[in-house]
Design a protein around this nucleic acid. Structure first.
Ligand code: SF4
Ligand code: SF4
Lengths: 142, 142
DNA sequence: ATAATATACTACAAAAATGTAGCATTTTAT
DNA sequence: ATAAAATGCTACATTTTTGTAGTATATTAT
């Protein structure tokens, strides 16, 4: 499963916004592009605003903009904000305490594999995403 | 999130059984040890039986035993059986198709990180778990 | 035979996650 | 001023996941 649908949506929204050239992204525009259920999308946009990834302006000509530089937002931050910081930090076997209070055979391997995943998610920023995206686009256009 | 509670339970049950020296594990015994909600645990035991990991015998002196050798059961198999084979194989951003139909910056890194995790889960069998567990136990007892 | 101790099954209940509807508020073009 | 176009908010609906209760069935010790 890895991530909840809600978190995937959040990444989807930010990932999409990061790879376009608009300044402003109204909810309705994002809905047309992403097909995330309308009202749910709106709620998520407000969430992402409260969490400081994007900023909103109301009224006519309103919409959403990134609240900070793309290079300061990485995937791990978004996941942590959506799922809580401990989501990627749980025991594989679902034990509160380890079996008989000592690490099982999986522990080191599991920690290592998970750490690698978290590292990947941490070191990739939305700026990286955008850069790679634009580069590929040029290549594809040839 | 990574895994559903149900899958964690399943791993918990099998992991526990694999590291003890009993032949037979009645549901009530597992309940006493694992504290997974009673009826839910029973349902999961029946599921795991139907999925061929364990076998049941009914009636007095009944209970559950492993249906096959511990070395033939790995974590990935259990996860696949519980969550469906595609659970660990989804797009990070939750896109059905990639943004604008071409891989994003995350793709290669994400695939690699996830592959590492899946590899770890595949190469570790319940026999490995047991072996490591018993070895540690000796060490701890000194 | 009977009682005790198991699992199997079915139907329901509660909680959490996801999705929907509608109105309130803000801003700006006209 | 007013209408249009946008976000904010609240309450509810649906679906999925997790948990519960109770009964049926099987096996065995006595
Ligand atoms: S040692 Fe095993 S049981 Fe303990 S937290 Fe790590 S994976 Fe879970
Ligand atoms: S390339 Fe990016 S959007 Fe496409 S499947 Fe991979 S992670 Fe998802």
């Amino acid at each position: 499963m890895i991530l909840s649908k809600t978190t995937e949506y959040a990444l989807s929204i930010l990932g999409f916004m990061a790879t376009r050239n608009r300044e402003l992204y109204p909810a309705e525009y994002l809905y047309a592009q992403l097909k995330i259920p309308r009202q749910y999308l709106r709620r998520l946009l407000t969430d992402l605003t409260k969490k400081g990834f994007i900023a909103s302006t109301r009224g006519r000509n309103g919409g959403f903009v990134f609240a900070r530089d793309l290079s300061t937002i990485n995937f791990s931050q978004v996941i942590d904000a959506m799922e809580g910081p401990e989501a990627m930090n749980t025991c594989l076997l679902g034990f509160a305490a380890c079996i008989a209070d000592h690490p099982c055979a999986m522990h080191d391997l599991w920690l290592e594999a998970r750490a690698k995943m978290v590292e990947t998610l941490t070191k990739t920023s939305l700026a990286d995403l955008r850069e790679k995206y634009l580069k590929d686009q040029v290549t594809n256009d040839k």
